[in-house]
Amino acid sequence: MKITRAEVEHVSRLARLALSEAELDSLTDEMDAILDYVEQLKTLDTEGIVPTAHAVPMENAFRPDEIRPGFTPEQALSNAPDRADSAFRVPRIIE
């Protein structure tokens, strides 16, 4: 086994993703099969190979630090599930 059910449960907490018992079972099997498949990468010697994060060679893209129009508070809040005045309201964080 490449991954255990307990590890899948741990990853679900890292991903902030609640999973049902049935999902934990099926994901353990599916992730195990996928991780077994990607194992083939280990057969390649990549000693000294520079990792590619970006396929097109680029320098940093700088721009002038200028004030430009952005969203109004109403626009920014237009899809808010819950709001209070000009703020997003969330469940209580501090008891």
Partner: peptide
Amino acid sequence: VRYGLRADNAENLIDMYM
């Protein structure tokens, strides 16, 4: 938080995310 679906049965903030 800012847009999209929010579960309404959450006990706290982390639970709301999950």
